[in-house]
Design a binder for these strands. Structure first.
Lengths: 179, 179
DNA sequence: TTGTTTAATTGATACCGTGTCAATAAAATA
DNA sequence: TATTTTATTGACACGGTATCAATTAAACAA
């Protein structure tokens, strides 16, 4: 029963994840992404890959988990700051995180599983926001799911277009639509 | 200069497209979709595939074109019917077409190119709708692109959830958000 | 520091899908 | 019916996958 993780494993997994992310951000054709290419980029042996991952989907899944953990961390901070009184403040920090990592998220959002996870986070944000409005007697007149789906659509488009608006400006547009 | 298309070509291409669509609708893992499998399903020889298509993406592209032509045909009809006075009537016939072919569209919308094309159609609908509202002095307060992206997000979610609302009911939700 | 344990590398392997080809069979056309 | 075009067949080289045993390298514990 080893208490600490072998630093070699930690390093290797980090190198593979970084390799995947860098290839994704270069808009490397996803259908042509091979274990070979990833191993080359990571400067590790191809066989080493199989010591840690079943296949590329497995690596992808673990990488997604890591990225979303980071997103959660970012969001956690924002719900404690001064703006947290406004219902839409969490949306701003959500968008800011996407803005900072636009190249990555743009491609990652093509992944169905990733989209589902992001949708769940958005639904959380919308529900929080909805409760805030309910408190003020200004409930949404559509289900939270539809609001969340709508926001996800807008965010996808925003990334696809190269983030043409700032996170706060985009938030205004989104909020505007729910007046 | 042959005036008519050889019926064998027509038949072969139809068989390949039908095979692709049936595999897609069975939710066949897209990353595992091979020319072999498609040819087997079409009950044609694998080499025949290469007489008509460069690769699977090529077949996909041609299939997408065919499906979207059908969508355009459906929409064309609706802009001439009695409801065409209302700005949102085209949206209803759009959603009805998606409702009828939900299994197919649900998966097809994962394709980036397909999504782009559907977005363009939605932008068209929204622009038409927006002009109608402008005429009545009730302009949207957000860019048409954002409205279209929002609707695309809602439609994707709606298909993903197994079309929980009827096309007209969903239209009400969407329209509701722009009062 | 040394011996033990664990991880990474290397070279080999069988397997599967790709894309292309020449030869042949089958169907359409005039 | 003769000619043209399409589809089939079996073969091929190529490249990526997933796994293996043997070896080298790094980490850990005493």
């Amino acid at each position: 029963m080893s208490r600490k993780i072998d630093p070699r494993i930690k390093r290797t997994k980090r190198l593979f994840k970084d390799a995947l992310i860098s290839l994704i951000q270069e808009n490397y054709d996803k259908s042509k992404l091979t274990v070979q290419t990833i191993a080359e980029r990571a400067e590790l042996n191809r066989a080493t890959f199989y010591l840690h991952y079943r296949d590329i989907d497995d690596l992808m899944e673990q990488t997604i988990n890591e990225i979303l953990e980071e997103l959660h961390e970012t969001m956690k901070g924002s719900s404690e700051d001064a703006h947290s009184q406004k219902g839409s403040s969490r949306l701003v920090s959500f968008l800011e995180h996407f803005y900072r990592n636009a190249g990555l998220y743009k491609v990652m959002l093509e992944n169905k599983e990733f989209r589902k996870r992001v949708f769940a986070i958005l639904l959380d944000i919308v529900t929080y926001w909805s409760d805030y409005r309910k408190m003020k007697g200004r409930s949404f007149n559509v289900p939270n799911e539809i609001v969340a789906a709508s926001v996800l659509g807008i965010v996808s488009w925003w990334l696809e277009e190269g983030t043409p608006y700032s996170p706060t400006y985009l938030t205004n547009f989104i909020v505007e639509r729910f007046k």
